[in-house]
Design a protein around this nucleic acid. Structure first.
Lengths: 241, 241
DNA sequence: ACAAAAGTGTTCGTCATACACCCATGC
DNA sequence: GCATGGGTGTATGACGAACACTTTTGT
């Protein structure tokens, strides 16, 4: 077993989360002070990443990075792209930061995204923060591009795979499910038509249980049954855009 | 400029081609004789791949590999997956072959596929051969898996991007286009309904020109206009499955 | 009783599906 | 003139789109 890491390949993780505000991304603070504590040379945000172990799978490396940031170990992981342009790192800021961390000027990264409800995750708030996908802060490296690609891929995948349920709690209401689609796709859906379609899906199973909100009518809860989903041939998914 | 190659990362290319028989893949012969010319230890097929240059983009490396195999330099290239399991190479055959070629037992490969009509491509027939996707020979490494993943990705992408036209000649008939969809998706389509949908698409432009076949009614030719396609908001693609 | 979100039905138009015959040409 | 693939129209049913009011609860 070889516990070294590859010196020229890393894994980056875009961490998506959903809460009642919508779709968010977990970012890590990046700062670098060279002259004074008050005037950081670098002061922005990045997605989490790290080098890969020589003798582990890429997936294992991605899981470890995800776990380090989130203290959570359910891995809804999708590999979506590999970035290998040698001039990816070229801004002064990025070069400074890389050098000051004693990392080789590596250029290749395999990018994954992870999808889960935000309230599963307990982060160190000094280092990490959730940002709405529509209001991202200044980002280091090419991480804006990586996040955009991840989001595009996620939009595609939720049309054809049941990945939306990874963003939901186990038990959810139909309105929560609709909100999840709306948040990811950044569109609005008609509530009545949405319910009609959902109720036809055998893999979305109603419970004899309701969710009591703050001060309103309780709503019925449903679960996603992966067993049923895997057996149904009718794989057409919930919405068409 | 650094002309060395990375010693632990390669690029693999799945080369799709379409002709009147259907969808095919270009494979390279892999043989290894250790004891006798008559009894090769390794005798199967692989997709083409190679190591990547340190100071070039992955895309440039993929293009070079594609060009080396095909003598063709139009690059309809799609990156679809990166494979990094350290135990990818584990069969005796694969290990023998790797060692006898003085290559490090590398484990990581970024996989691309290329899409074009077969008759653009002129291959060295001693080394390369086209195989129907439904009748693949014995394959080395994990290349069966890679090809399957490429095909799955292609099936998805043709539903949502105009990649089908990469498999067609510039001028094509509607029946040829239908055959292309049928070949890639391995389904049958109703000819009349297909034509109805296609004729609605403004980006599929009829020519005042016909194609004379061997002994039948000449058929009308069409071209795909990327200019129009890029400007249309109606991006819904040709078929629904 | 009222505020707040949950839940429900109908109409209309479009589009997918299924299906069978005539057309233009080369030989 | 016949064989071959090219090309066309219609009827039916399903489904997406648009749309407004009633229900249930907590306070």
């Amino acid at each position: 077993m070889d516990f070294r890491k590859r010196d020229n390949v890393s894994v980056d993780c875009v961490i998506f989360g959903l809460d009642t505000d919508g779709l968010k991304i977990l970012l890590r603070k990046r700062t670098l002070n060279m002259f004074s504590d008050d005037y950081p040379v670098v002061d922005d945000w990045i997605i989490t990443g790290g080098r890969v172990f020589i003798s582990k799978t890429l997936e294992a490396s991605a899981n470890r990075i995800f776990e380090d940031s989130t203290n959570f170990s359910v891995f809804n992981r999708t590999q979506f792209r590999t970035y290998g342009n040698p001039s990816r790192i070229k801004s002064d800021k990025d070069l400074l930061w890389v050098r000051s961390h004693g990392v080789k000027n590596q250029s290749m990264t395999i990018a994954y995204y992870f999808t889960q409800p935000i309230d599963c995750i307990d982060v160190d708030e000094n280092e990490f923060k959730w940002f709405s996908v529509n209001a991202l802060p200044e980002l280091g490296f090419d991480h804006y591009e990586i996040i955009r690609d991840a989001h595009e891929d996620l939009k595609l995948k939720i049309m054809v795979e049941p990945i939306i349920f990874d963003l939901m709690p186990d038990k959810f209401t139909l309105n929560e499910l609709q909100f999840a689609f709306e948040s990811v796709l950044d569109i609005e859906l008609d509530n009545r038509n949405f319910r009609k379609k959902v109720l036809k899906k055998t893999y979305i199973v109603p419970l004899n249980e309701t969710k009591k909100g703050t001060a309103k009518k309780p709503s019925k809860l449903y679960v996603f049954s992966r067993d049923v989903y895997d057996k149904v041939s009718e794989k057409d998914f919930i919405i068409n855009v």
